[in-house]
Amino acid sequence: MTEAYEKVQLARHKDRPTAKSYIDNIFKDFTELHGDRRFGDDKAIMAGIAWLDKIAVTVIAIEKGSDLQQRVMRNFGSANPEGYRKAMRHFEQAQKFKRPVVCFVDTPGAFCGIGAEERGQGQAIAESITKMVSLKVPVISIIIGEGGSGGALALASGDEVWMMENSIYSVITPEGCASILWKDTSKVKEAANNLKLTAQDLYNLQVVEKVFSEKLPFEKLCQEIKEQLINTLKNSILLTEKELLDKRYEKFRKIGR
């Protein structure tokens, strides 16, 4: 078995495709729409509308940036409250126009700073989770790199959560865990193993529904994701609103029952 920490390194690798590459390969005519109408435009979260084959969908993605300049501009994929509020604005529009939602998650965590706290990071995440879990249209989240705690969960509380083979999803970073448990950040490997944060672990724990192999070339992988999205959304569209919401409620309800 591959060590969990190797997966952590792969998930964070600088050459890993970011959300933008997935969007370009899976959708057509992605049109980015900016701002939360309250405070500003958080560059860590991109949102807009695109075609998934013949279905118009809302796309919300945490974008880390593909080179240093981009990464700085994107705040390394750490969203501020206004990012989550932008996402919520798009959840609401998706519901109004009956568009399914696809989210891409790739974040070390919600941004940790004075401004983020002043503007209610906790409140923004809580509201985003609530909006997403009660959204009356189908919503699927794909974790493509790092799924960092509450900052990831805020965009991963939908009908299904999928993961790339080399992505991770965790309640705390292995570094944070090691420093709390052993007061020693060099114990990250032990921490990573203990946290059960790999895509395979999460699939076994029934927290995620699908894991995509990354052995395929990237374009093929995106094609595969596209087909799965179309299939899943087509099935979701057959459900009544109540069935859709009950199924989603049950997905989370059963964890730790």
């Binding site: 965790s170 309640v171 927290v207 964890i255 730790g256």
Partner: peptide, 18 residues
């Protein structure tokens, strides 16, 4: 969220919110 229960405690945030 309790670190010792990993992702399963994170999921309680969505479960309770729902």
């Amino acid at each position: 969220a309790r670190m010792q229960e990993g992702i399963l405690s994170l999921m309680q945030m969505t479960k309770t919110s729902a």
